[in-house]
Simulated scan of single mutants.
Amino acid sequence: MEALNSLTDKIIGAAIEVHRHKGPGLLESTYESCLAQELTLRNLRFERQVAVPLLYKGLTLDVAFRADMIIENKILIELKALEAILPVHKAQVLSYLRETGLSLGLLINFHVPKLVDGVHRFINDRALSVNSAPSVLNNPAESITAT
């Protein structure tokens, strides 16, 4: 859990740096590009617009959705540039976590005066379970314990 918390801190720090330089008011895709640059400067491995398959009634749908970013094969990032985060945006992150098998996700909304007010952290309860389904991605989810 400590390693995930440290990684989360680095990601949030990178996002704060982007927000500090660019502020609110740009498109989500712009923030994604800036965040990618900042993560690269911090030597963090990531993928952008990751195509995630979906298992449905025994069938695999090749590209059910695209995760904005997956950092170090451990943390899912959903970026927004919205006036307000709605319950549906939070549900989206939780659904993405369940489908990927990842245990931790961040929803980052850049359309706020202070970025810390736009960061939401989510834990996939299914990934915490010993009986959790394996990740549909090419890497296993890291288990974390609830505190």
Rank of each mutant, 00 (worst) to 15 (best):
R20Q: 15
S33V: 14
D125Y: 06
T100M: 09
H120P: 00
L76M: 03
A81V: 00
I71P: 06
E2V: 10
S143C: 02
R66G: 00
V52N: 07
P113G: 01
I70N: 00
Y56C: 01
Y96A: 03
A15Q: 03
R48M: 06
Y96H: 14
M1Q: 05
T30L: 06
V88F: 12
R98Q: 15
I12E: 01
S135P: 06
Y96I: 03
E142F: 01
L26D: 09
V63H: 02
I144R: 03
I144C: 00
L107N: 04
K80D: 01
L41E: 15
A3N: 09
L76H: 03
S95H: 10
I71W: 01
Q49T: 01
F65E: 13
P53H: 04
F65H: 13
A133T: 10
F46P: 05
L104P: 06
L104Y: 09
T8P: 05
R48A: 02
Y56H: 11
K74V: 01
L76T: 02
A14G: 12
Y96E: 14
S143V: 11
T100P: 10
E17Q: 11
E99R: 08
A67Y: 05
K74R: 15
R45T: 13
L35D: 14
A91Q: 15
T145H: 02
F110I: 05
L107D: 03
M69W: 07
A36M: 13
V112P: 08
A127E: 00
G105H: 12
Y96T: 07
A91D: 15
D117T: 11
A141N: 11
E83A: 06
S135I: 07
R121D: 13
D62T: 12
N131E: 11
L26K: 08
N73F: 00
E99M: 11
F46L: 06
K80L: 02
R48N: 06
L41A: 12
P134S: 10
A84H: 15
E83I: 12
T145V: 08
A51S: 15
L35K: 05
L39R: 09
G105W: 05
I70C: 00
V18H: 07
D9M: 00
I108F: 03
L137S: 03
P113T: 11
S103G: 14
L27Y: 14
A15D: 09
E72S: 06
L86Y: 15
L76Y: 02
G13D: 14
T8V: 08
T30P: 04
T8H: 04
N43V: 02
A133Y: 11
G13S: 02
